[in-house]
Design a protein around this nucleic acid. Structure first.
Lengths: 175, 175
DNA sequence: GGATTATTTTAGTGATCACTACAAAAATAA
DNA sequence: TTATTTTTGTAGTGATCACTAAAATAATCC
């Protein structure tokens, strides 16, 4: 999972993935069916891990403003490079991949995340949920990309604070 | 150039690039030296084209607020997918590439753009130029990524408007 | 027009890609 | 303990990758 996250789907070959798991290609195929199957499992593990910032922010409770703000702060803390891994696997793991299946898997994961966030925002802002979730999704995408380009926690935290303020203002205007 | 932009550096091979230019590989190598050399030229042409949103926004004059706002609006208009091409070549063209040289070329282009924007912002906000340009860069990164994921002009324009408002507020606070 | 130079193409190169047939090893059942 | 099933590894497969040596073609010079 870390290899896919660090370098993207296409840049990591099956031989290297097998070596990281301590198995040879046939065993990898026996276990996962294909490279994309392994990627799918990596995405599922990512979703259930501490990297799921929306899930974590939601678990601590609070209103929409609190949860979204917490999520931005979590992104600022978790996205900067650590051991060569930066950003978000779902948002950028299959960026520019030549493999339709891999791109489809991340597209589906992104769509599911967007729906979950939109539905949560709609609990307080039904009329503006689409507009607000778009803002959140695009802002997080920018943070993931920036982290992968080398941005540090300080600059991501400054952006998160601005995004948080903006979200609160935009949400309050729809009341 | 459009192939690199549409699919990313690694997803387009030399044979396909040659076919698009109407030449065979040796001629391509004679002309550009390497695949990365061709990519370098594509980046240079992109920079001098209408896709240079900072250059275009700057050419119309005005203060920092006006230029940055105009740039966000240009991004919202130019980034959505058209003929399979979306987002920004400099920001996302070599994302996840296994080729160090290609990634280095886009990193250098991004750094140069950032410096240019920072210096421009510093003409009115010297104390906050770094903070403000970080916001701009991350926001544009999010817009490019969103466009490549299929976002349309309406949602990018809505984000651009919010980013514009945010930039103006944050800039005004540092006065 | 012939000789020379420049450009382009044909036909590859060695490496890597995702994946697999078959053999070997390990685990399980009788 | 032997037979059967499952798991893993060896040794590939055909395709694609970026790139190139040598041949062919086109352009230029005298």
């Amino acid at each position: 999972m870390r290899l896919f996250h660090a370098r993207g789907y296409d840049a990591v070959g099956v031989a290297e993935l097998g070596a990281a798991l301590g198995i040879k290609p046939p065993s990898l195929y026996a276990a996962f069916g294909s490279k994309a199957g392994l990627f799918k499992q990596a995405l599922e593990r990512y979703f259930t891990s501490d990297a799921n910032i929306f899930g974590r922010a939601l678990a601590e409770g609070g209103g929409v403003d609190a949860v979204i703000g917490r999520m931005f702060r979590l992104a600022a803390r978790l996205y900067p490079a650590r051991d060569g891994v930066a950003g978000c696997l779902v948002l950028d793991g299959a960026r520019n991949s030549a493999d339709d299946e891999a791109r489809g898997l991340t597209a589906a994961a992104r769509a599911a995340s967007r729906v979950a966030m939109r539905d949560f925002i709609a609990t307080e802002h039904p009329a503006r949920a689409d507009d607000l979730v778009d803002f959140v999704v695009i802002a997080l995408g920018g943070m993931s990309a920036a982290a992968r380009d080398g941005a540090g926690e300080a600059s991501l935290a400054a952006f998160a604070a601005k995004a948080d303020r903006t979200f609160r203002r935009e949400a309050a205007e729809g009341r």
